[in-house]
Amino acid sequence: MVDGMTPAPRDGVINEHRFAIPGLDITPLPPAFRVSLRAGPDDVGALSQALDVGLPVAPKSSAIGKSGRQALWLGPDEWLIIDAEADPMIDLEKAKAVHSAVDISHRNVALAISGRRARATLEAGCPQDLAERAFPVAACSRTVLGKIEVVLLREGPERFRLECWRSFADYAWTFLSEAALAARP
């Protein structure tokens, strides 16, 4: 690159959006490192060590490491690794175990949905049972919201993290803000 040229700055897709009504906040979450990690059952241990977070093996569950790195079970050989600070790709490069790590930091966009009406808002478009009994704190799942695919992680009794593909973020935002107005807890 030509000397003195400033590198290209980073944009987001919905990072300026805000939505708050009594009982509900929808907030775009800041960029994060994300890796789609795939591996067979025999390599879970080695990869957990490399990542410093125990990869969950139970369906619909997630784990969080000491540094705050999150590992979400999405399928029997698939995890979504999220880290706000450090790039998990670097740690995975050192891992000897056979695996596939693909950087999807920019593929996904995340939203936090929190408040008394959070569950009702999500249930406007998500057909899964989101009662705490069926979807407790730390539960996560790939599922649908209206007409798009999303990943849902329950971070608290009334707080969810929703991840979707970048080009569906507009839809997710519009859906949630529309559904929120009619949501009855």
Partner: peptide, 11 residues
């Protein structure tokens, strides 16, 4: 059979 529970057809 992989998720170990019943899920809605939409998925």
């Amino acid at each position: 059979p992989y998720c170990g529970e019943e899920r809605p057809e939409l998925e």
